[in-house]
């Protein structure tokens, strides 16, 4: 399968780099490196970026996505071909917060403006490589804390809760887990188990059903994304405990709207993904047009969404 993935990644990388369009000399070219376009969140983000390109009209957008969330090689290949094509700026949502540092360093050395968004590159990896790179993105930890706080407020002190984590090793998964843990500490909840379901609905459904068997007195669930929250809600239904166990998620995908409305889910968090790529592109163009180099963390909006927000 590894072999297959490499072939697939290779094919994708080639097919993505082949349509070399000739660019008008005056418009800067922005290379957008996305994560999996199979994920609704990134697909919406790309659409937001395309709409932004049409609206601004003063730059040309070249977007590259990957086949799956963990397909790091495609991203590295994309950065490398953007360097070869001599684009003016690269805006990147890294699939791996360490592996992308070396190719991005090469891009900066080639005089390309690089802006990191969505998931922050690893501080230590940046230091070791000796690069200074700004990050435009949401505070996943603060977002998860919002959702966790809502759950804590609803349940009260001492209630037993579990966390359903995202992919081990993914930075946003780690940040969201930390945010949940912050809320658990502040709200004096009791964390009895924490497991990954790899962002997936079916796995979350099975894993949570088994956790509930082992701990029948679970009162609350914090899921690191909404796809997993959907699986958790269904497991609660199957166990006949709808209403007795509260669930919070993250991302505010359309599929959880009915669940929020029917109060099968307590809350989720919107991080306005559609605007995020566009914001990052704005920042990159600002630098290209002679603005000061970006530094530190440019935080984007996050908002708690509850049944009150769903019409």
């Amino acid at each position: 399968m590894k072999f297959g993935k490499i072939i697939a990644a290779g094919i994708l990388a080639v097919s993505l780099t082949v349509p070399a369009v000739s660019f008008a000399a005056d418009k800067p070219v922005v290379g957008l490196v996305m994560k999996s376009l199979a994920n609704e969140f990134f697909k919406n983000m790309l659409e937001g970026a395309k709409a932004h390109e049409a609206k601004r009209g003063d730059y040309t957008l070249k977007a590259v996505g990957m086949q799956s969330e963990t397909d790091i090689e495609t991203q590295i290949n994309a950065v490398e071909s953007f360097i070869t094509e001599k684009v003016d700026a690269i805006v990147v949502a890294p699939a791996d917060s360490r592996a992308l540092v070396p190719p991005l360093k090469r891009a900066m050395e080639a005089g390309i403006v690089v802006v990191n968004f969505d998931v922050a590159l690893d501080e230590k990896a940046k230091q070791e490589a000796g690069v200074e790179l700004a990050f435009v993105g949401p505070d996943n930890r603060a977002g998860a804390k919002l959702a966790g706080d809502a759950l804590a407020k609803k349940l009260g002190e001492g209630a037993k809760v579990v966390i359903i984590e995202g992919n081990p090793g993914a930075d946003n998964a780690a940040q969201r887990k930390l945010g949940f843990e912050d809320a658990i500490k502040d709200g004096k909840l009791s964390l009895i188990d924490s497991r990954t379901a790899h962002w997936e609905t079916e796995e979350a459904n099975s894993v949570f059903a088994n956790m509930l068997t082992a701990n029948p007195d679970i009162k609350g669930v914090m899921a690191a994304n909404d796809s997993m929250a959907v699986g958790v809600v269904k497991a609660i239904e199957a166990a006949g405990k709808t209403g007795q166990i509260k669930v919070v998620g993250f991302d505010n995908i359309p599929a959880v709207q009915p669940l929020l409305k029917e109060k099968k889910m307590l809350a989720t968090v919107d991080q306005f993904g559609q605007q995020m790529a566009a914001d990052a592109i704005d920042k990159a163009i600002g630098v290209l047009k002679g603005g000061a180099p970006l530094k530190g963390w440019v935080k984007t909006d996050i908002k708690l969404v509850t049944s009150d927000d769903v019409k």
Partner: peptide, 15 residues
């Protein structure tokens, strides 16, 4: 069966 169990159909299931 997947749809009956989880009540969604998504293009990224079954990986």
């Amino acid at each position: 069966i997947y749809m009956a169990r989880l009540n969604i159909a998504s293009p990224i299931i079954g990986i």
